[in-house]
Simulated scan of single mutants.
Amino acid sequence: MHHLLVLASFCLSSLSGSLAIYQRPTNPATPPPLQHLLDPIHKIVHTQRGATVTLPCVLRAPVPQNYKVRWSKVEPAEYMEVVVLITNGAHHKTYGPLGSRVHLRHSHRYDASLTISNVALDDEGRYRCQLINGLEDESLSLVLQLDGVVFPYQTSHGRYRFNYFEAKQACQQQDSRLATYGQLYKAWTEGLDWCNAGWVIEGTVHYPIINSREPCGGRLLLPGVRSYGAKDKSKDRFDAFCFSSAVKGRVYFIRGHMNFKEATLACQNDGATIAKVGQLYAAWKFSRLDRCDGGWLEDGSVRYPIITPRTGCGGLPDPGVRSFGFPSKLRKKYGVYCFSVK
């Protein structure tokens, strides 16, 4: 028993690669109990979209004979655990959509750490490293957490138009994914204040309130993430809370007085595409894009990102992505935000 440990407190990740430091136990004959190495504060590995990251899992000597190590990912929305990789130390096999982007780090004979390249939004979540050795199976869990930004999203037809599956698709179309409840809660602690309820990936519905007010639950309720609980995924309709992380590319503004079609062509003529909402939020969050100019986006909305609030740029005290909503696509009044992978 206790052949498995994680050196999470020694794990660092970066946009270009990852670094994990292996430290031998000071007294290999009497290693500390497994739970002492699994303090919750060290079980979260941070990264960004597009990065390479390593989830540390190290076998403790002596390695048992005929063992296997199985990596799996817990999918809470589907209530299932999906196998990612299985190894017997000499060979390994990968499975599922992650298969082409994962491999064992294997920096030494006891290293069963999992490396994920080109991290995608859907890679975030809880992973389990399980040592399979007959009756002495044991496992540990790690959470891969992407740094990112949560934003509320609704259609041009108004609020509360998405069932759960439509909300999920709408976020994907805007280069993002449905946020988790944890991501929404973190966004609330960072100042997200939104009165419309929206789906999160767990299938529940919430809305974050900083300033208690009518009609957002009333002035007497304390600030917090208000909850409607689980709803019927097919029948009930709300907005969506989407989550986006860093993008491999650049969002930039082209000035002009264009309608939507002209704006789309302007980006294409510049060798780019018209930016999606998730890409604009990512540029605001990670590239600190700050412009006071309203510009068309791919979904037909007009928005602009503000890092430093100032007179004439929305009049709000906090940074954010301001919105003009969904004006007529024929109006020749706005510039455009383009996205280029160059």
Rank of each mutant, 00 (worst) to 15 (best):
H91P: 02
W284Y: 03
P327H: 07
M80P: 01
C216K: 02
T30A: 12
E75I: 15
M1K: 01
A8M: 00
S18I: 03
L146I: 00
C216P: 06
L85H: 01
H36A: 13
K329L: 08
A263N: 00
E166D: 14
R126F: 11
V247Q: 10
V277F: 10
R177H: 13
S139E: 14
P40L: 01
V63M: 13
S100A: 15
V225P: 13
V53D: 02
Y228L: 13
F151E: 08
N118Y: 14
S100G: 15
L142I: 07
A112P: 05
T26C: 11
R322C: 09
P40N: 05
E81G: 11
H92S: 11
R237E: 03
Q130T: 15
T54M: 04
Y228G: 09
T204H: 04
D137M: 08
F324H: 14
A112I: 11
S72P: 08
V150I: 06
G17V: 08
L220K: 13
E166H: 12
P305M: 06
D137E: 12
M258Y: 05
S14M: 09
L59T: 02
E78A: 12
I41Q: 05
P208N: 00
M1P: 04
S245W: 04
T94P: 12
E81W: 02
V82H: 00
H3G: 08
Y153H: 12
V63E: 09
S156V: 12
C195F: 00
A61D: 12
I21L: 15
E262M: 09
V6R: 07
A90N: 14
A197H: 07
P223S: 09
H108V: 09
R255S: 15
T94V: 12
G312N: 07
H108P: 07
D123K: 03
D137L: 04
R109Y: 06
F339T: 09
H108E: 15
K186C: 05
G335L: 02
I274G: 06
H108G: 13
K276P: 00
V83F: 05
L220V: 12
G320T: 00
H108T: 11
L222W: 10
H3T: 06
Y252V: 10
R159G: 07
K68C: 11
P319Q: 04
R24G: 12
L12M: 14
S72H: 07
V102L: 03
Y228R: 10
G314R: 05
G217E: 04
I201L: 13
P319I: 00
F151T: 06
S301G: 15
L121T: 11
G134H: 00
V102D: 07
I307R: 04
A8V: 01
H2F: 04
C195D: 03
H92Q: 05
V277A: 14
Y67K: 08
V84A: 01
F10M: 15
E214V: 13
A20L: 14
L4T: 05
Y185G: 01
